[in-house]
Simulated scan of single mutants.
Amino acid sequence: MKKIRLGILDQSIIARNSTPKEAILRTTELVKLADKLGYSRFWVSEHHNFQKIAGSTPEVLLAHLAGEAPNIRVGSGGIMLPNHSALKVAENFRMLETIFPGRIDLGVGRAPGGDRPTAALLNPSNTFSEQEFMQQLKDLRAFLTDHQTSESPHENIIAIPQAETVPELWILSSSGGSGYFAAHLGMALSFAHFINPNGGPEAVKEYRRHFRPSDLLAEPRVNVGIFGFCAEDEATVQRWLTEMDFRMLYIESGARGPYPDYEDIIQFEYSAPQQARIKYNRQRMIYGTPAQMKARIEALAADYDTDEIIISTFFDDFEATKKSVELVSNLF
């Protein structure tokens, strides 16, 4: 068994009866804890027009988090590149890398991070095409390294400031498509098992098979993102699982009303299609007591042949979230 490194993905969820400011304060406290416990990296996400998540601007939040936690790598999981100019993303992350050299990760994806109308407002020229995304990736790599090529011919344009080091560049994927982009361009791959629990190991194998070394990365590199929670007692695990079952259905339905209390959730009677969806969604999670969690993390790492797992814990109970982060850290 490889030595497994652990990271955290945090979306700055707004808990019941809480505020966006309190969500950001929770994220700040969590990165400090992760730093203290020795986690390898801490990523934050980009979401838009979703009122229960405060994380809309990773590039802004990361400057704060990196200053609060002096050792851990911090990064985006991810920047939704079609929402932005490749040049501006490069400048944002070169600035972060200049301030915090050797500690910045730039994870990019091609999902909108919200609905299509919102994405169209963020970038009115967005065509949602794979070809445009591929060109953005080529441009981004060129701007970050000052290596302009025929594929990214912007010889008179430099991303400022010119940092002495380069952020780690990751492509986020929940299917095989973006894995091919990562392989072709010689970038690291983060597979979002928490989005799509099917076909990930095969997609990663194809990424490794087609990988082409680049000036950014000599060999293929993979981590896997998963929803996860650990507690010392089964009752707390079951509560998290019950909440997650409902939360996933709630998000997928596009609901925008008040989020019900746990006492109301446990009274719900799910239809057969909802029960089937819950069964599917549980494949996107790992959970359990410490012994169960250790075995499940090791199994996931073995399935993907990776030594790094990124865990996202959606839970209103922040004390239980912090305890989970601590318990998982102790396992490895």
Rank of each mutant, 00 (worst) to 15 (best):
A276W: 13
L217E: 08
Y262A: 01
L300A: 11
H210P: 08
D233H: 04
E298A: 09
K279N: 08
I195D: 03
R239L: 10
P260Y: 06
Q274N: 01
I265G: 03
E234K: 11
A272L: 12
N223Q: 11
E232C: 07
V224F: 09
A291N: 14
Q292P: 00
R221P: 04
K279R: 14
E202S: 12
P197A: 14
W240H: 06
P220K: 02
A255G: 08
Q283E: 15
L300K: 07
A183Y: 06
V204D: 03
Y280S: 04
E206H: 04
Q283C: 13
R284P: 00
S190T: 10
M248A: 11
R239Q: 10
F227P: 00
E298V: 07
S271Q: 10
A255I: 01
V237R: 01
E263Q: 11
P260S: 07
Q275K: 15
Q267E: 15
L216R: 03
M244Q: 14
A276G: 05
H184N: 12
L241A: 09
L185S: 13
R256D: 15
S214H: 11
A235P: 02
R212W: 04
N223M: 13
Y287S: 00
Q292W: 05
G186I: 11
L185C: 07
H193G: 00
Q274E: 08
Y287I: 00
I265R: 02
L216W: 07
D303L: 05
A299P: 11
E232W: 13
R212Y: 09
E219C: 03
R208F: 03
D233Q: 01
A218L: 08
R208N: 09
W240V: 04
F194K: 08
N281Q: 07
R221G: 02
I195S: 11
P273K: 11
Q292M: 04
Q238A: 05
Y280P: 01
C230S: 09
A188N: 13
E202A: 12
I251Q: 10
R282I: 08
I251Y: 02
L249F: 07
Y250T: 03
D261F: 12
M285G: 02
S214P: 08
R208M: 07
M293D: 11
F211E: 05
A291V: 15
I286H: 14
T242M: 06
G254Y: 03
Q283P: 04
F191Y: 15
N196D: 02
Q292Y: 11
G225T: 10
A272V: 15
F211H: 00
Y262S: 00
Y287W: 15
E263G: 03
L300Y: 07
I251G: 14
R208E: 13
R221M: 14
P260T: 06
L241T: 10
D264V: 01
Y259I: 13
K279M: 04
T242V: 13
A291F: 15
L249E: 00
N223F: 12
S271C: 08
A276H: 08
G288R: 06
Q238M: 11
M244P: 10
S253Q: 10
Q267W: 09
I226W: 12
V204A: 04
I251S: 15
D215Y: 14
R296K: 13
Q238F: 12
R209Y: 08
E234Q: 15
V204P: 01
Y287K: 00
L241K: 10
